[in-house]
Amino acid sequence: MKETGSENLEREISQLISRLEKVKAPSDFTFKLKAKIAAEKQKRDRRKVLLIRLSYALPALIAVLSVALFTYFLKERNEDLASFRENQITKESPSLERDYKVENVTTLNREESSQKVQNQTKEKVKREGASVAELSTGDKDSSKSASVVRANERKEKIAQFSRTEALSVPETAEFSSGKSLETPALERGDAKISFSEILKQIGIEGSFEEQGGFRVRFLKSNSVAERAGFKTEDLIVAIDEKVIGKQDMYFEKLEIKKFKVKRGAKELSITLKP
């Protein structure tokens, strides 16, 4: 009975609710709906157009961006390379400067050493001359020849010593440090004119000697050298008071005037005549 009672009540409620008046759509419902659909269509069309544009624009944008990035990185790379080169140059340049400095120092030292050598040799020659004079009283021929040989040997030793000293002057310009220096920049070919080239220009051809110096093998007739008094088989020991080693040397444009030449036992000083 209870169940049927509740069922009846439910039915009554249901009937009560169903009797509620139905709300109707407004009269302009369809009109407004059409407008809404048209607006939505336009919106979707715009979206479609936008999508189409994007489908073209995006790859274009990506292409432009990639080109821009590529050029940017290229530029960066070039700048890096340029800065790297600059760095290299700046790294090299002080060494060059240093080399030139060293060269200057060495040339100065060479000048000093050559002067010293000259003084020493002069003194020794004098001394030996005196000893030769002393000896000439005795066995003249044998003693003279022996003393000349010794003097020559000494001279050569001194010359060698002076050459090695001159070449092995360190950066600090300590004359007698004894350390061997790398070939100076001028000798590496950084300068303009080589020693042999200078000689060629004045009409001398020949070769460097193992002991140092340049041996004149051929003289151009009527050349500056010939006029100055050079002769074949002369050994050029120094040029403008710079001792000539066993290798070619390089000079900046120098006005060469003085040559120190060994002719047999004699040592001559030849000045170029313009």
Binding site: K22, V23, A25, F29, T30
Partner: peptide, 15 residues
Amino acid sequence: IVNRYQNPIVNYLYR
């Protein structure tokens, strides 16, 4: 379709 369903749907949503 709109004519058929507009009133029931409006009524349903209103309730």
